[in-house]
């Protein structure tokens, strides 16, 4: 599975312009690690709502760039949060690795 769906990414670039995409990628790459960190600290604090919200934002943003795998992983975590279930196992590590792949790919594409 490719980390970024090129069809979605190219459509996005075409509709909004290369310069804007560069800004948008920048905002995403800056925010996503914050959300992952928020999820980690929310787990420690057992703050289900903060956990769910961070996962929700990451899910949404990954989908914007066509990062389907990352979005699906974030969605799984969001759903666990919604069900008040914070037994997430190693899912955050898996998510983080997926994000690293997305980050590398976006840097290439930009």
């Amino acid at each position: 599975m490719s980390s970024i769906d090129l069809k979605i990414f190219n459509e996005l670039r075409e509709a909004t312009g290369a310069e804007f995409i560069s800004e948008l990628v920048h905002a995403f790459l800056e925010d996503a690690p914050v959300q992952i960190a928020q999820m980690r600290s929310a787990l420690t604090a057992s703050d289900v709502e903060a956990f769910r919200r961070a996962a929700h934002t990451l899910k949404s943003n990954a989908a914007t760039f066509g990062a389907a795998e990352l979005s699906a992983l974030a969605r799984e975590l969001e759903m666990l949060g919604r069900e008040n279930n914070l037994a997430v196992g190693n899912r955050i590590e898996v998510l983080n690795e997926a994000f690293e792949r997305v980050k590398n790919r976006l840097n290439e594409l930009e």
Binding site: A15, T16, G17, F20, E23, L24, A27, F28, D31, T57, S60, N61, T64
Partner: peptide, 30 residues
Amino acid sequence: MIASAHPAHLLVVDDNKVNRMMLSRNLGLQ
């Protein structure tokens, strides 16, 4: 993209920065 015939004053309310940027950009282009 062709600009809208009636430019309007719009408000985007979203806690997610990427969403705000996306919506603002698209609506601005319109």
